[in-house]
Structures are given as C-alpha cells and as structure tokens.
C-alpha cells in the first residue's frame, strides 16, 4: 500500500525545516533575486531596448527565477540528506515502511516544495517590479517542478557521495554555477558568436532556462521538442539512478 501519510510527513518535515532556518532558506534567495531584478530592471534594463517584444527585465526574470529554484532545490535535498547521514537520522527513514520509490518521492518532493515556496516569493517580488508575465501557467508550473526535481535528485546524489561538508559544494561550484550562468539566463544566444551559440545549445541549462522563459513570455530560442526531451529525459534517468542507489543502500544502509 502506498505510504501517503509517510510521504506527506516527509514533505511537512522539510517545510518546517525550511521555516526553522528561514533567513538562509527563504530570505536570502529572495533578497538576491530582488537585487538581480532591481539591477537588470531599473538600472541596466532602462538603457536596453525591448527584446523579443518584452522589456529586458521580463526576458531576464525567468533566468533569475530558475537560478533561485536550482539553488533552493539542490541545497534543500543535499543538506537535508547529508545532515541525516551525518546524524544517522536517515535510520528513521530506513526502518520505516517506505518503498525505494516512496523514498525518492519523499526526498524529491520535499526539495521541490522548498523550491516552489522560493519561486512563489520571487514571483511576488517580480510582480512588484512589473517583471512577470505568464503566457502558459500550466507549462510554467510543470517546467519549474521538473527543473527543481532534476536538481533535487542531483542534490541527493551529492549528499550520498559526499564525505564532508565541503564536498557538498563541489558540484555546485564547479558544474552547476558555471553552466547556469553560461546557459543564457541573462542574455539571448543571438548575442553570441556562432561557436559560442552552438556550445550553449549543448548545455542542458540552456534548455531549462528556455523552457521556463517560453512559458512566461512566450519566446523560445531552443527547439522545444529537444528541450522537453532534455528536461524529462533527465528527470526520468536521474529518478531511475536515485531509486537504484536507494535500493542498494549506497552509503546509507550498511
């Protein structure tokens, strides 16, 4: 039988943990996003012509939102699971009646919940600055949840792999941050020379930003079919990998 109450408890616990350290989990990302919006909207944006039929800030806002979603989701999953390994609190989950798929849904759902709270708050800030438009709200929610799920699962893998707090930051520092900034979140690939544009198209983060942007402002620079394949292909493959790691008990079950 599906452990519905157990899953809800995992989500509830992570949301409570989020509010326990509210400055780190919610206030900090909202302030960062507000600064990005202020600088790109009110400072730089006023000197740049509309792009793709929308003000520059509306073009950039989906990228700012994605940056925050990625950070919230990745840090939620990696810190929660690593802390549980560190304190052996993971044993509470291991002895409870969760299937491996339920464990995956619980950890990913918890991280996605935090990412959605952060996204909602940043959308609120964006509305205040007049930076938000939503041409396809359904696809927006689907893409935000999918991108958050991808980084939740990467966070889980890193939390399982890491042997120290410093290692938790390795993927974020050397892979996620560079690929995010080079994924076209602040600029259009039409601004790039051909080789750089081609390289950007090989960066999965470009498709994450483009999918969220297309659902918000209706403008896309990527092949949407390729984008959907990249995003949902990653969701499916990472879900299979994490479920497998839970099943073999990698680093959590002796």
């Amino acid at each position: 039988m599906f452990n519905r109450i157990g899953l809800y408890t995992m989500l509830r616990r992570e949301v409570q943990r989020t509010f326990r350290v509210v400055i780190q989990t919610l206030v900090a990302p909202v302030i960062s996003a507000a600064l990005y919006i202020f600088i790109f909207g009110s400072v730089i944006g006023t000197r740049i012509d509309d792009f793709a039929g929308v003000p520059y800030i509306s073009f950039v806002f989906p990228g700012v939102l994605m940056l925050s979603i990625i950070n919230a989701s990745f840090s939620s999953a990696s810190s929660a699971l690593y802390f549980m390994r560190f304190t052996r609190g993971i044993e509470e989950i291991l002895i409870s009646p969760f299937s491996y798929l339920e464990m995956l849904l619980g950890f990913v759902g918890s991280a996605v919940s935090r990412a959605l709270i952060v996204a909602f708050l940043i959308l609120g800030v964006g509305v205040l600055f007049g930076a938000v438009s939503l041409v396809n709200p359904v696809m927006f929610v689907i893409y935000v949840a999918a991108v958050a799920a991808i980084f939740a699962m990467l966070g889980i893998i890193v939390a399982l792999w890491a042997e120290g707090f410093e290692q938790l930051q390795v993927l974020n520092t050397f892979v996620i941050t560079p690929l995010t900034y080079l994924g076209g979140i602040f600029y259009s690939i039409t601004f790039l020379p051909p080789l750089a544009a081609t390289l950007t198209r090989a960066n999965p983060f470009f498709y994450f930003a483009d999918a969220i942007r297309s659902s918000m402002i209706g403008y896309s620079e990527a092949n949407s079919a390729i984008g959907a394949m990249v995003i949902f292909g990653l969701v499916a493959s990472l879900a299979l990998l994490v479920t497998y790691l839970f099943r073999i008990g990698w680093k959590i079950r002796s």
Binding site: T9, E92, I93, S96
Partner: peptide, 18 residues
C-alpha cells in the same frame, strides 16, 4: 539517531507519520 533540533513531541510525530 535523531535530528537534534527536533523536540520529543516532533520526533514521535514524524515517526508516527512515517
């Protein structure tokens, strides 16, 4: 093997939920 920031009541609540 617990979250040291949780209270006894929360520990039982979470475990019961699980």
């Amino acid at each position: 093997n617990v979250d040291i920031f949780a209270t006894p009541e929360q520990l039982m609540d979470y475990m019961g939920g699980y």
